[in-house]
């Protein structure tokens, strides 16, 4: 049988892959957004695993809301990206240094 820690370690691995993606990516912000999606899916897998193993459906409700928020985030993020491309002519991470942060 598959234990709870199998699911948890799987989602930890996926979470760290998304984290590395944010670290190494320097070319376009679209891939950064996709890495954030990957991290959110890993977290959702955690929620669903605990929901199933503890017999409590509240975790699945939370996954539902996380999916809603992620969809809204993607819509606004891609809109900002389109705007950035219109102003800067590129979506590289290196050109978004106007704030000198």
């Amino acid at each position: 049988m598959i234990s709870l820690s199998d699911y948890l370690i799987l989602s930890a691995i996926i979470f760290c892959i998304g984290l590395v993606g944010i670290f190494v990516n320097r070319t376009n912000i679209i891939t950064l957004l996709m890495c954030v999606e990957l991290i959110l899916v890993a977290v959702n897998t955690n929620f669903i695993a605990f929901s199933n193993f503890l017999g409590n459906e509240a975790g699945q409700i939370f996954v539902f809301f996380i999916l809603t928020v992620a969809a809204a985030e993607v819509a606004i993020g891609l809109a900002i990206l389109t705007l950035l491309f219109r102003v800067k002519g590129s979506i590289s991470v290196d050109v978004t240094n106007s704030l000198k942060g």
Binding site: M1, S3, L4, S5, L8, I9, A12, I13, F15, C16, I17, L19, V20, F23, V24
Partner: peptide, 24 residues
């Protein structure tokens, strides 16, 4: 640096979430 950080995080999480804590 990113790979080192990620591998460390995976091992730490695997220690915490291992079979001793969340096994069958």
């Amino acid at each position: 640096l990113g790979l080192i950080v990620a591998v460390i995080i995976v091992f730490e999480m695997a220690m915490v979430l291992g079979y001793n804590q969340f096994g069958l």
